[in-house]
């Protein structure tokens, strides 16, 4: 009886941990044009770039963030992990920015392939795609996302 109880408890703990790690998994990778000298970026910088609070790379090149369309699971993960907000909250942020005349949101692409093409075509571009999507045959590279500065 005690063994069954312990096994059950262990199973629950393992599943809990598994579920936790699933939730924590970003489910996306951040990519830039392969000519871009940047190899890593902090979460805070990434958020500011996608909110257009940082507009230029260190080399002076204009940053061109690109989003996936709003129903994409990778967009949801990115928003939750990077902005600490739901996609709907970020949409509201941009509506406010637009109608106060402060700026317009990054372009939204319908598929990871379109994001890859956009980044390949624009040297200053940065975007994200689902983790399981290959970047082979595109002139882009994955950069590391640091938790802190």
């Amino acid at each position: 009886m005690r063994r069954t109880l312990l096994t059950t408890l262990l199973f629950i703990l393992v599943m809990w941990n598994f579920a936790g790690s699933q939730t924590a998994s970003p489910g996306y990778k951040v990519i830039v044009n392969e000519e871009n000298p940047v190899s890593e970026i902090s979460v805070k910088e990434l958020s500011k770039i996608f909110l257009k609070r940082i507009r230029k790379w260190d080399n002076g090149e204009k940053i061109l963030p690109v989003d996936l369309e709003e129903s994409s699971p990778a967009r949801e993960s990115f928003s939750r992990e990077v902005h600490q907000k739901k996609v709907s909250a970020i949409k509201a942020y941009w509506q406010k920015q637009i109608f106060t005349g402060r700026g317009v949101p990054p372009p939204e692409k319908d598929s990871p392939r379109e994001v890859l093409q956009y980044i390949e075509e624009h040297e200053g571009a940065i975007g994200y795609i689902p983790e399981n999507v290959s970047i082979e045959n595109f002139k882009v590279k994955v950069i590391r996302v640091k938790a802190e500065d």
């Binding site: 509201a92 509506q95 406010k96 109608f99 106060t100 005349g101």
Partner: peptide, 16 residues
């Protein structure tokens, strides 16, 4: 638009 209070700059934007 006057930067006045929380809402003036978005005063007529119904979705906000």
């Amino acid at each position: 638009q006057l930067p006045y209070g929380i809402y003036n700059e978005i005063r007529d934007v119904g979705v906000l």
